[in-house]
Write a protein that binds this DNA or RNA. Structure first.
Length: 271
DNA sequence: AAAAGCCCCTGGATGC
DNA sequence: TGCATCCAGGGGCTTT
């Protein structure tokens, strides 16, 4: 489910509400991708200072240590003033004096990991190799182009890989490549400076528009307030195999790249 | 070192 | 209706 826009929409939907909250109890349900990394009761009494995002990770800053949260493929968070009994797929609860933060994740590819700090080995193992934040000031055309030139794989794979730029998942990689008119299979190291510039702009544009639309709700994503996203209605190619391209009316094509589906338009993406 | 493949897991859609 | 198969928004780890 969650790419950068969905994670950011989630963050925005509960960051203010949870700021300053004291942790009262922690419930760990069925196993997620990794163990919590500390005894749940050790978190009791600590305060949530802020909620940040790095790539597709959420970072809950505690007054001592941090909680790294990842939504995997099917995860979503909810934050509610009133708590209620957990459902089948509710695998992590953080009960605070300001409300209950709950992770719902049917497939359990998500994770909640405690680390003593952002620079700790536990955190760096997950965050250490992440590329540039696409909506941040450090994501420049020059650095993006240089990053592409270092990669000998398909540009679609580079976007998904997260070592050059983070947060771009399958939906937004397809959409950005369409907007930039670039073939998904193009070798990244053969992208010209002009193409890199177009793709850079497309990535920023599609991600920021998606945040404004509340993300994409394909199956069951919603923000921590329960609000659905609407960007999927604006998708030009993703999930539209065989349907007419919204620009040229040629049928949208589907191909496999690294076990993932790539949607694209052969007529509009010739670069 | 870098790239490609392999899994983790559940549920919904599709086809017979 | 039932059952098998395929597919899904990710990404760390293992194998080439």
């Amino acid at each position: 489910m969650p790419e950068l826009p969905e994670v950011e929409v989630t963050r925005l939907s509960f960051a203010n509400a949870i700021a300053g909250a004291a942790i009262e109890s922690v419930r760990v349900g069925k196993a997620l991708r990794w163990p919590l990394g500390t005894a749940p009761q050790d978190l009791i009494g600590r305060h949530v200072r802020a909620v940040r995002r790095r790539g597709k990770y959420l970072l809950l800053d505690l007054d001592q240590g941090i909680l790294l949260m990842h939504l995997g493929m099917s995860g979503s968070l909810s934050f509610s003033r009133r708590s209620c009994a957990p459902g089948t797929h509710d695998h992590f609860d953080l009960q605070t004096d300001q409300g209950l933060l709950r992770l719902h994740d049917p497939r359990r590819f998500g994770a909640v990991v405690y680390a003593p700090g952002e620079d700790s080995p536990q955190a760096q193992k997950l965050l250490g190799r992440l590329g540039m934040e696409p909506l941040g000031p450090d994501f420049t055309v020059d650095l993006f182009h240089a990053g592409c030139k270092r990669k000998n794989s398909a540009i679609k794979q580079v976007l998904l890989g997260g070592q050059v730029v983070v947060g771009v998942g399958n939906i937004y990689a397809c959409e950005a490549l369409f907007m930039a008119g670039i073939r998904p299979t193009r070798k990244a190291n053969r992208i010209t400076r002009v193409q890199a510039s177009r793709l850079h702009a497309a990535i920023r544009d599609v991600l920021s528009r998606a945040v404004q639309q509340g993300g994409s709700t394909l199956r069951d994503f919603s923000s921590a307030k329960g609000e659905n996203g609407y960007f999927q209605l604006e998708a030009m190619v993703y999930g539209r195999k065989g349907s007419p391209c919204r620009v040229c009316a040629q049928p949208v094509r589907l191909l496999r790249q690294g076990q993932r589906s790539t949607y694209w338009c052969a007529h509009c993406q010739k670069a």
